[in-house]
Design a protein around this nucleic acid. Structure first.
Length: 814
DNA sequence: CTAGGGTTAG
């Protein structure tokens, strides 16, 4: 009982979105029923995701806690036939009893390992939530037998091993009420599986209170648990308490555990000092001690130091194994040095070691990171051809890469493959799906996946929730995002600062200062530590509502709190100053960050350029481009577009096109904005035909253009007295499938009327009515005045009659 | 107890 109170029940997440507006139709209800059966009987969640994805239906929120009896009844009684169900139940009970009988027989002979494996198989089939009924069976059928307590103990132990913590705790509480004592090995298992939570200490206290003697693993598990919970100081103190007087000699494993914890916390130097501590205790560092450190150094990019430790390790007589090679190989992959990766793979083969799945996964990751998913998929085929089966990690890498490229068809193909092999989706794999769907804007599908993983007892963590929250925010669904966040907080689940940052950013993007500040207050109340991201986001929202003094004040506040501003902090402020036309303040900020040795990035430079262009200091802007090349920061499309816009504003057509050429020389694909700028400048300079030819040449090359490029040309044709061409060209826009709006028509008609091309304006009006758009009051006025000016009273009356008849101005005329 | 996969800010 002690344990149950603290443990939170499963199945609270995901919170369901506020009910989707349309009521669930009867067809959907039928589908829901079908799904219900799917989710409770199917062993493969991937199948369900695919089914959902292919069906493309609305979210159907499934109840996740189906009881066992319910499951049995659905499986057995086809037509709800009572007898069928009764027969099936009896058979099922008989099979369970037979197995428990076997366990007791084995217990009488002391064959613990075999009990363990029988129960493991059994509980795996039973699933979580099965403890109450199994306990009942044990209690009713095996009460007076000597071997009972052994079976009960192994039962609790196996539940713990299978991470069915609820069930393990249930068995323990039952044992307690029956006056049976669990073994230290069972407590160890339980603590190991609860090492990420505070509950280990409750169990440890329980062990002490009951006078159970600790095992050789007990302390190690506790130290590991403290490390896993980032309580390093406590871990070290506990180590000293237990091992300080050297009465209980620590394992080398315990030292390694500590080193691993320190490394994960980024305290590599402290971890290194453990090496000498090991010697002081009369032990020798082993393979794990070295590889733990080396791994950390590789992850931090310190390959040289890592290589040096490898030499030390070899001097100690420890040969490189596959794991050690993989760590090194991954180190080079992280640095993007794929040639070194290949060298090492050849080297390990030369030494008689076989690259394993991890090696290949690193290779696949490397290819995918370069954007070459095809090559990643090729390696996958090669691996399979060598008789190695990919695991969920390798598939995750590929899934993630495919989502990033938007190759959703291939994603589904891989999911099919995962299903066919029978691999289990894990937390990361599910998170990739959720994030992927979110990025595609398919939030409902993402929520379905979330729901599904919950029903499979794979609980979403902060990353998973972050993906959902950020896409809700990106879609501007702040009410839903806030509601989701509040639910997370309300259910007492771990909510970290990142989740708050995401939603604050959501508010910031829509300029909702109050929403952002409300969450800021909440963070303070909860006692979470604010990060620089939080501050950057708050600075951004004040910039957004043009309160630059407040924003800059915030910067000073940050510094007073001892937090270092980053390149993002400064770039945000600089961009706002440029937007407010205050280039001097922008430059002041730029100089300030340089003084603080904060490295500008490509965005910072682009902002500086934008400011300089605004002041007309174009030569200076070009100089910035040169500065960037020198500091090894590559200009991107936006940088070039910014510069190009500067030259377009002074109508320097030649420079605009030279910048375009330079983009191509640097292998940068111009964006729609680039083309819009160029087409616009051609039109402004009266070279409308030239603009049209340029547009055609782009289309020939297969470039996709935005509607703006087309309407720019139409506007120019109208303004420059080419009404006939404008009509033909506008027709082309409609035929190309663009959605035209009243604004596009008004822009053309206004310009035509201004140039007295009243007949052509009328043709536009007819086109407009033809596609089902009606003129507004303003546009009617423009056309009527044009008729009056040209004294075309006949047309005027026709138009007025039409206006009255169509009821466009009905509300005005009364 | 060591290796490979997912995340937030301009």
């Amino acid at each position: 009982m002690l344990f149950r109170s603290k443990f939170r029940p499963f199945g609270q997440f995901p919170p369901q979105l506020p009910a989707p507006k349309p009521a669930i139709s009867s067809a959907a209800a039928a589908a829901a029923d079908e799904l219900l059966i799917d989710s409770s009987t199917s062993k493969n969640p991937v199948r369900e995701i695919l089914t959902l994805a292919k069906r493309g239906n609305r979210p159907l929120f499934l109840p996740s806690n189906r009881t066992r009896v319910d499951r049995q009844s659905r499986g057995a009684g086809k037509d709800g036939n009572f007898m069928d169900w009764e027969v099936a139940r009896t058979r099922f009970e008989d099979a369970r009893l037979a197995r428990l009988e076997t366990c007791h027989a084995l217990a009488r002979e002391g064959r613990l390992k075999e009990i363990n494996s029988v129960l493991k198989q059994m509980l795996h089939e039973e699933g979580s939530g099965s403890a109450p009924s199994l306990c009942e069976l044990l209690q009713n059928n095996f009460r007076d037998c000597d071997s009972c307590s052994i079976v009960w103990d192994v039962l609790a132990n196996v539940y713990a091993q299978l991470e069915m913590i609820h069930d393990a705790l249930y068995v323990l509480s039952k044992m307690d009420s029956l006056n049976m004592q669990a073994s230290i090995s069972t407590y160890d298992s339980l603590m190991y599986n609860l090492r990420h939570t505070d509950m280990v200490w409750d169990i440890y206290k329980e062990i002490r209170a009951r006078g159970v003697t600790h095992s050789e693993y007990t302390y190690n598990i506790l130290i590991d648990s403290l490390c896993k919970q980032q309580r390093l100081q406590d871990a070290i103190s506990f180590f000293q308490d237990v091992h300080g007087r050297k009465e209980v000699k620590p394992f080398i494993i315990t030292f390694n555990t500590l080193m691993s914890g320190l490394c994960n916390a980024g305290l590599v130097e402290v971890a290194k000092s453990i090496l000498s501590l090991i010697l002081k205790y009369g032990l020798r560092p082993d393979r794990y001690s070295y590889t733990t450190l080396i791994h950390r150094l590789c992850a931090a990019g310190s390959m040289e130091e890592a290589l040096k430790l490898f030499e030390d390790m070899e001097k100690d007589g420890i040969l490189l194994d596959v794991v050690a090679y993989n760590i090194l190989i991954n180190g080079y992959r992280l640095l993007g040095l794929m040639s070194e990766v290949w060298k090492l793979i050849k080297m390990m083969i030369f030494q008689g070691l076989k690259p394993d799945l991890v090696t290949y996964t690193i290779l696949i990751t490397g290819h995918c990171e370069k954007g070459d998913v095809e090559e990643g998929l090729r390696v996958r085929r090669e691996v399979i051809a060598r008789g190695i089966q990919l695991n969920i990690v390798a598939y995750s890498v590929l899934l993630n890469a495919l989502f990033k490229k938007g190759q959703i068809g291939e994603v589904h193909q891989l999911l099919d493959e995962i299903e066919a092999i029978g691999l289990h989706m894990d937390l990361v794999a599910y998170s990739i799906l959720i994030h992927g769907y979110c990025k595609l804007g398919e939030i409902e599908r993402a929520l379905q996946v979330c729901q599904m993983m919950c029903s499979k007892q794979v609980m979403p963590n902060s990353f998973t929730h972050g993906a959902t929250l950020s896409s809700l925010c990106k879609k501007g669904m702040l009410v839903e995002a806030r509601w989701y966040l509040d639910n997370l907080v309300g259910s007492g689940l771990m909510v970290d600062i990142i989740l708050y940052n995401i939603v604050i950013d959501g508010y910031a993007k829509i300029g909702d200062v109050d929403g952002a500040l409300e969450l800021y207050e909440q963070i303070l109340k909860l006692g979470l530590s604010l990060t620089i991201v939080t501050y950057n986001t708050l600075i951004f929202v004040f910039c957004k509502i043009e309160k630059l003094t407040v924003a800059e004040h915030f910067l000073r506040q940050i510094e007073l709190n001892g937090i270092n501003p980053t390149v993002v902090t400064y770039t945000t402020l600089m961009d706002a100053f440029v937007g407010a036309g205050n280039t001097d303040s922008m430059l002041r900020m730029f100089n300030e960050m340089i003084e603080k040795a904060i490295m500008p990035n490509v965005i910072t430079y682009s902002v500086v350029m934008k400011g300089l262009c605004k002041q007309g200091r174009l030569q200076k802007a070009i100089d910035i481009l040169k500065d960037m090349h020198i500091s090894g920061i590559y200009a991107d499309q936006i940088t070039y577009n910014t510069l190009m816009q500067g030259f377009c504003e002074v109508q320097n057509i030649e420079m605009a096109f030279r910048i375009h050429d330079e983009m191509l020389q640097h292998n940068l694909m111009p964006t729609p904005v680039t083309y819009n700028l160029l087409i616009n400048i051609l039109c402004l300079k009266g070279k409308v035909d030239c603009a049209e030819k340029f547009l055609d040449s782009l289309l020939d090359k297969g470039v996709r253009l935005s509607k703006f490029a087309y309407t720019t040309i139409v506007k120019a044709q109208c303004a420059k007295g080419m009404p006939g061409k404008a009509i033909i060209f506008f027709d082309r826009i409609i035929r190309s499938g663009f959605e035209v709006s009243i604004k596009d028509f008004s822009a053309a008609i206004n310009r035509l009327c201004k140039g007295n091309f009243v007949n052509e304006a009328t043709i536009f009006l007819k086109m407009m009515l033809y596609v089902g758009i009606y003129p507004d009051e303003e546009l009617c006025t423009v056309i009527c005045s044009a008729f009056i000016k040209k004294k075309e009273l006949q047309s005027l009356f026709v138009l007025q009659a039409m206006i009255v008849k169509s009821g466009i101005l009905a509300w005005d005329i009364q």
